[in-house]
């Protein structure tokens, strides 16, 4: 569980914006460090799959996944501009101060999967929370069998983190397959929904001794689950992160509940077996 609570869990810590990088339309990566080095040290103990509450002062606060792996030196967020606070974050200038508190949530129990294959299926910006476990797994690649990434988006312009692929591909046991719904002229990879990659000639998806990670829009999620189940994946070997309206991140505001679970403290990572038992549709 979480470390003992500090005095005021709602108090954002001051973060300083160091650098930004545009990913795809409306999605930008924000590199930051904490003003207080002691806060930075404690925060850096986050786990893949955890999230933070991000404040733009005077505007509000929202939850965002932590896409870096704890094995990387830098802290960053990748955020899509959709509403008031995310738009305000996109407006920030380098050197600006904003607020971050966390890390929150359970995260992926990566150590439990040592010795197994990882099948990682991402749709669109669903790659943001999964990036952390990809980079973590690649950093520890000798502890896993095969690490397969299946990544789909609507168009080639909607694929994220592509500039990192060459570095990722240095790991001998990593394979990556890309697909889009609507290709452009330059597109040389697969066309179709994410699940269609599983049947692509030359692709072998391990099922035994394998954990499948799935993150993406609800429709993609449903179809990928169906495909994985058809291949023989057990519900408990499929794992995902859920997204819900959140205000507090610490199990008090009540907004994020799905059935029996508080997504912020019991999740956001759940196995498909757990998702089916929540008692409310996702």
């Amino acid at each position: 569980m979480q470390p003992p609570a500090p005095d005021n869990v709602y108090l954002p810590k001051i973060a300083i914006l160091d650098r930004t990088e545009d990913e795809i339309a409306d999605v930008r990566t924000f590199y930051w460090h904490f003003d207080d080095p002691a806060v930075q040290t404690v925060f850096k103990r986050f786990r893949p799959g955890q999230f933070a509450q991000v404040s733009v002062f005077g505007v509000g606060e929202f939850p965002a996944s932590l896409p870096p792996s704890p094995t990387e030196p830098n802290l960053f967020l990748t955020v899509r501009k959709v509403g008031s606070v995310t738009a305000a974050l996109h407006q920030l200038k380098l050197g600006a101060r904003f607020g971050v508190r966390g890390p929150y949530g359970n995260g992926f129990p990566m150590q439990n999967y040592f010795g197994q294959n990882l099948v990682i299926v991402a749709g669109g910006i669903g790659l943001i929370p999964l990036r952390s476990c990809i980079v973590y797994a690649l950093h520890n690649h000798e502890r896993f069998r095969k690490i397969l990434l299946f990544y789909g988006a609507r168009t080639p312009g909607d694929l994220m983190y592509l500039n990192e692929l060459p570095a990722w591909q240095e790991a001998p046991n990593f394979e990556c397959y890309l697909t889009v719904d609507r290709p452009d002229q330059a597109w040389s990879h697969h066309v179709g929904v994410a699940g269609s990659l599983f049947k692509k000639p030359g692709v072998t998806v391990p099922v035994e001794n394998t954990m499948a990670f799935v993150c993406g829009p609800p429709i993609m999620f449903r179809f990928v689950i169906r495909d994985l189940k058809a291949m023989g994946f057990e519900d408990r070997n499929i794992i995902s992160t859920l997204e819900r309206y959140m205000k507090c991140g610490v199990g008090k505001c009540g907004h994020c509940c799905i059935g029996l679970a508080y997504v912020c403290t019991d999740g956001p990572v759940f196995t498909y077996e757990q998702i089916k038992r929540l008692g409310e549709d996702i």
């Binding site: 505007v59 509000g60 606060e61 205000k247 507090c248 008090k252 505001c253 009540g254 907004h255």
Partner: peptide
């Protein structure tokens, strides 16, 4: 009932308050 929402509101020049409100 314990649920609340959180919002930010102006509280004078350059000042804001983050408040929580029953929801």
């Amino acid at each position: 009932c314990t649920c609340f929402t959180v919002t930010e509101r102006p509280a004078g020049p350059g000042d804001y308050e983050r408040v929580r409100i029953w929801d």
